[in-house]
């Protein structure tokens, strides 16, 4: 069961990477926002599933999500 869930997560991340590449080549006005949000989502999937962060204390989860939110916002605001 765990092996299967890892595989689903991997396929989801690969799918999101392909979407990012397509968005990057599109003429969408909000392409940067979409690409960065997808990148943040992929990073969280790796951390929570592959690195097992979902079983860690809430402090570590909040720290990662908070830091990532600040980073993405700074990239988009500048």
């Amino acid at each position: 069961m765990k092996q299967k869930s890892f595989l689903y997560v991997l396929l989801l991340i690969i799918g999101l990477t392909i979407i990012s590449a397509f968005v990057s080549n599109s003429q969408l006005e909000s392409a940067t926002e979409i690409i960065m949000i997808l990148a943040a989502f992929k990073l969280l999937l790796v951390a929570f599933y592959f690195m097992d962060l979902r079983h860690a204390n809430v402090f570590w989860k909040v720290l990662l999500i908070g830091g990532l939110t600040i980073f993405i916002n700074l990239i988009l605001i500048i």
Binding site: T32, I35, M36, L38, A39, L43, F71, I75
Partner: peptide, 9 residues
């Protein structure tokens, strides 16, 4: 983090 910022944005 590197890939989207350097290669796509």
């Amino acid at each position: 983090l590197l890939f989207p910022v350097i290669y796509l944005v």
